[in-house]
Simulated assay, not measured.
Amino acid sequence: MLKVISTHVFLRSRLHPGLLEVFSKAGAQGVELFAARQHFDYTSRAHIREVGEWFRANPVEAFSMHAPMFPDLEMGRGGAPAVNVIHPEKSRRIDAMDEIKRALEVAEQIPFRYLIVHLGEREDGWSPRSLENALTALEHLRAFANPLGVKLLVENIQNEVTQPRNLLEIIQVGHFRDIGVCLDVGHAHLGDGVAATIAELRPLIRSSHLHDNNGGRDEHLWPGDGTIAWEEAIGELKSAPQTPAGVLEIHYALEETPESVAAKAQAAFEKFGL
């Protein structure tokens, strides 16, 4: 498994080369950029250039990017609507896809392999309409991403739309042979269970989000600080046909220091035998 860290852990800070150095010191082979304007401003040429220069000068790969969840600088706290590509309102869907396309354009300056996409929000249910909107969104975003060398990965989040059986239906009905899954272990633990979720989605898994919780809410803790059986989970992930990357996605609210992130990330990679 490729050792990767998400910049989500530093979401309250502007991403800069000093923070990227933290990931390098931890032994990461790749980084997942979290596209949030107050953190990594994917609309700023200067910010993209600054981050891109660091990647060009270092062996660490810009592995993936997490698509924007909100279009503003406050993660929706100021009232901005969430980026939701399956929203019932067509105008909201169009706005959401346009925002994601802005983030995808980063690949022209910072090449990355995968874009991690959310289909809907936490309360979105499964219906013929949500299936149709998901198919349309993925087809549209795929057509934009492929010329940039980026493949789409859909994440299992806490809603009906991305339950394993529904993700399989979306990908099969759409004949999306080049779209895979980012298996979020923490979300799986809160849903059908990690082993069951991996078993159902195994052929499609290309990346994974690794974080822990205690089974009640999505805490994004360091692995080992919750109740996930990590030895079993990592073993199942490693047995997938295409061994996925292991992306540590730790919550910014834990307010880790650069020093603690480097130490804890290195310990987590060692714990997983990576």
Rank of each mutant, 00 (worst) to 15 (best):
K3N: 13
V4K: 05
I5N: 02
I5Y: 00
S6A: 12
T7D: 09
F10C: 02
F10K: 00
L11A: 10
R12P: 00
L15K: 04
H16M: 07
P17G: 04
L19E: 03
L20N: 05
L20Q: 04
L20H: 06
E21H: 09
E21R: 10
V22D: 00
K25D: 07
V31P: 03
V31M: 03
A36E: 12
R37N: 02
Q38A: 15
Q38P: 00
H39D: 01
F40V: 04
T43E: 05
S44R: 03
H47C: 01
I48Y: 04
E50F: 01
E53L: 10
W54E: 06
F55Q: 05
P59G: 07
E61W: 02
A62Q: 05
S64V: 14
M65N: 05
D72G: 08
D72I: 14
L73K: 09
M75Q: 11
G79R: 06
A80H: 05
A82T: 13
V83C: 08
V83I: 15
V83G: 07
V85G: 10
H87T: 14
H87W: 11
H87I: 09
H87K: 09
H87S: 15
K90N: 09
K90S: 13
S91H: 13
R93C: 14
I94F: 03
I100V: 13
K101L: 11
E105L: 15
E108K: 15
I110M: 12
F112E: 06
R113N: 13
R113C: 02
Y114V: 10
Y114K: 10
G120Q: 10
E123R: 15
E123K: 15
G125M: 05
N133M: 07
N133A: 08
L135I: 13
L135D: 13
T136P: 00
A137N: 15
L138S: 13
H140C: 12
L141C: 13
L141A: 13
R142D: 14
L148T: 11
L153G: 02
L153T: 05
V154A: 07
E155Y: 08
N159W: 03
P164Q: 03
R165Y: 02
E169Y: 02
I170F: 05
H175Y: 06
R177K: 08
R177N: 14
R177Y: 09
I179G: 12
V181N: 04
L183E: 08
H187I: 03
H187C: 03
L190H: 04
L190T: 06
G191F: 01
G191V: 02
V194L: 05
A195S: 15
I198S: 06
E200L: 12
R202L: 09
L210K: 00
L210N: 03
L210C: 07
N214G: 07
R217E: 09
E219S: 11
H220A: 06
H220E: 03
L221I: 08
G224V: 14
E231T: 12
E232V: 14
A233T: 07
I234T: 04
G235H: 02
G235T: 08
E236Q: 10
L237C: 08
L248V: 08
E249Y: 03
I250G: 00
Y252C: 01
A253W: 11
A253T: 14
L254H: 14
E259I: 00
S260M: 02
V261E: 01
K264C: 02
K264F: 04
F269T: 04
E270H: 06
G273S: 12
G273Y: 13
L274E: 11
